[in-house]
């Protein structure tokens, strides 16, 4: 299970919609509770069902959002590259996530709205540096053009799958956000603690942004 977190208005719900429904909705109601999405992906020939929880970004819902980290295997921490304050708040989100999740939770940092290059307020290098410093995977995405959205979700899932195979996750403990489905398919996924490797690897295939 993934959880999507970040300030209000950075495009969390739009990322989810793009990933699950392959569409973009320019006007989106403010998320005031938690919303869900799910999609099957194929990793190394295995069908894996990703369950994604989309949370409310507003400060007033922070205590509710916090309670959902538990049981999440991976988190997408999203900021808006056109609004610096959303980048500045990352530290506080990260603290929350680290404090309330299981220690294994993988966090992927996402700079969203990469289609709005002209209004860019946060350099890609800044995002990369933040990710490196805190051990996160990093990508820039556009929920509008769908650029890198697939990759963001799937690469994390791949990483999780790799870690499962390495035995770093106890797949029998559902509190880790992983469930073995019938016929041995893995119905939820986790991301590992990020690696430099991932971030550079992703950097190389993000040319469209």
């Amino acid at each position: 299970m993934y959880i999507i977190i970040g300030d209000t208005g950075v495009g969390k719900s739009c990322l989810l919609l793009q990933f699950t429904d392959k569409r973009f909705q320019p006007v989106h109601d403010l998320t005031i509770g938690v919303e869900f999405g799910a999609r099957m992906v194929n990793i190394d020939g295995k069908q894996i069902k990703l369950q994604i929880w989309d949370t409310a970004g507003q400060e007033s819902f922070r205590s509710i959002t916090r309670s959902y980290y538990r049981g999440a295997a991976g988190a997408l921490l999203v900021y808006d590259i056109t609004r610096r304050e959303t980048f500045n708040h990352l530290t506080s989100w990260l603290e929350d996530a680290r404090q309330h999740s299981s220690s294994n939770m993988v966090i992927m940092l996402i700079g969203n709205k990469s289609d709005l290059e002209s209004r860019r307020d946060v350099k890609r290098e800044e995002g990369e540096a933040f990710a490196r410093e805190h051990g996160l995977i990093f990508m820039e995405t556009s929920a509008k053009t769908a650029c890198n959205v697939e990759e963001a979700f799937i690469n994390t899932a791949k990483e999780i799958y790799r870690k499962i195979q390495q035995g770093l996750f106890d797949v029998h403990n559902e509190a880790n956000g992983i469930k073995i489905g019938p016929q041995q398919c893995i119905s939820t996924s986790v991301g590992p603690s990020a690696s430099q490797r991932s971030s550079s690897e992703i950097g190389s295939n993000s040319g469209c942004c």
């Binding site: 005031i32 509770g33 049981g71």
Partner: peptide, 9 residues
């Protein structure tokens, strides 16, 4: 989800 217990609204 009996672990995270999401509040549905």
């Amino acid at each position: 989800d009996h672990i995270a217990r999401p509040i549905l609204i």
